[in-house]
Write a protein that binds this DNA or RNA. Structure first.
Lengths: 210, 210
DNA sequence: GTCTATACATGGATAGAC
DNA sequence: GTCTATCCATGTATAGAC
């Protein structure tokens, strides 16, 4: 069956990317992981890069869809921070961030992969952005923090942290804790009350003018 | 000359990693970039991975040394933010972050590379950490932000941002701007004055107890 | 649609001449 | 120390049998 084999290859590609890395992801290794013949990669996708591009879209859509409802229910920065860490742990286990890391590395020198990887990342970014716009929009900080940019920073930083975790797990753990602390700090400023907020705003304006 | 060829190979490895990526970095491609014979990779370094490991140490040490004095002169968060962006731009141009990104991707599945990459990253982390300890230690925030963890988060996030930049330059630009804004926010809280700081501290303690 | 066979290129690694 | 030659494994891609 055509559709079944296609799917096997897509999942095989994702598995190979996480388990062997972009450098050892080939038509042969993917086909082996998928349990199908190597020639089918070219029959169904034309080239290895095209397969990886489709696998990126396929995999990312599945993972993002998993969290869409939960993300839509978040309304405060505190909730967002807690959910973010849980989601990160879940995606790390599923290998979806690892896939993006490997594809991003490969995409630096291959325009075709770059396009697909950007599209995949943008699925995550769009979700994070929606939540941030909502959470920050309802907050006094909204005017000073760019949710659009922050969503992109968060998504790419998570990929960086995931890659770092692969070479220094304890360091990465500590990094995540520190970021959580920083997030709490922002959440706290958000809850300072009118007087404190006015002071923060005034100083921010002063600083920005320099 | 032995030493000269070794150096050519090390620089060739760095160039190949940035220009072709980890997936296309081979003894042959590196040797071509270095302008020497392919067999010399194995004579001087034993294997391609060993060459890449040494290149990581070699390259990172050089780049970090470049900024050591400037980093030592930084004493405020504002200075640190400004310097950070300038340094990021310089390192991006030099390709040193790209090298770390490619090596991190390869390191996920190769213990030998992982060790070397962790060591290379730790050179950056150590410098960032020293500055953060100094800057945050002199600030009322010192007790609430973990400089050690934050240094690791900063270093790995920069790698993630660099990889993201390769597939979406505008998005990465906006992400960096947003992070800068967030940094300013923290700097502002730092300068709030005694009353504001006391309020922040009190609320932080309350939040952490939950 | 899938498999076998095959071509041709690239890559890791070594032996031996210089 | 460096180069040439070479071996063998792996990878991309296609043709043709089933």
């Amino acid at each position: 069956m055509s559709a079944e084999t296609r799917e096997k290859l897509l999942q095989g590609a994702l598995r190979t990317l996480t388990e062997q890395g972009i450098a050892k992801t080939s038509a042969r290794s993917v086909a082996a992981a998928a349990g199908v013949n190597q020639a089918l990669v070219f029959y169904h996708f034309g080239s290895v890069d095209d397969l990886l591009s489709e696998a990126c879209r396929y995999g990312t859509e599945q993972r993002v869809a998993r969290h869409r409802d939960a993300l839509a229910a978040i309304s405060t920065l505190g909730e967002l921070l807690e959910f973010g860490r849980r989601m990160h742990e879940e995606e790390r286990a599923a290998g979806s961030v690892a896939v993006l890391g490997q594809l991003l590395a490969g995409a630096q020198t291959q325009p075709r992969l770059a396009e697909a990887t950007a599209a995949g990342l943008s699925l995550w970014v769009a979700e994070v952005e929606k939540v941030l716009v909502r959470v920050l929009g309802a907050s006094p900080l909204g005017g000073f923090v760019d949710a659009v940019g922050l969503a992109r920073a968060v998504a790419s930083s998570f990929v960086g942290l995931e890659l770092y975790e692969g070479v220094d797990p304890q360091g990465a753990e500590r990094a995540l804790d520190a970021l959580e602390g920083l997030g709490e700090l922002v959440a706290v400023v958000e809850g300072l009350g009118v007087v404190g907020q006015r002071a923060v705003r005034h100083r921010l304006r002063t600083v920005r003018r320099l």
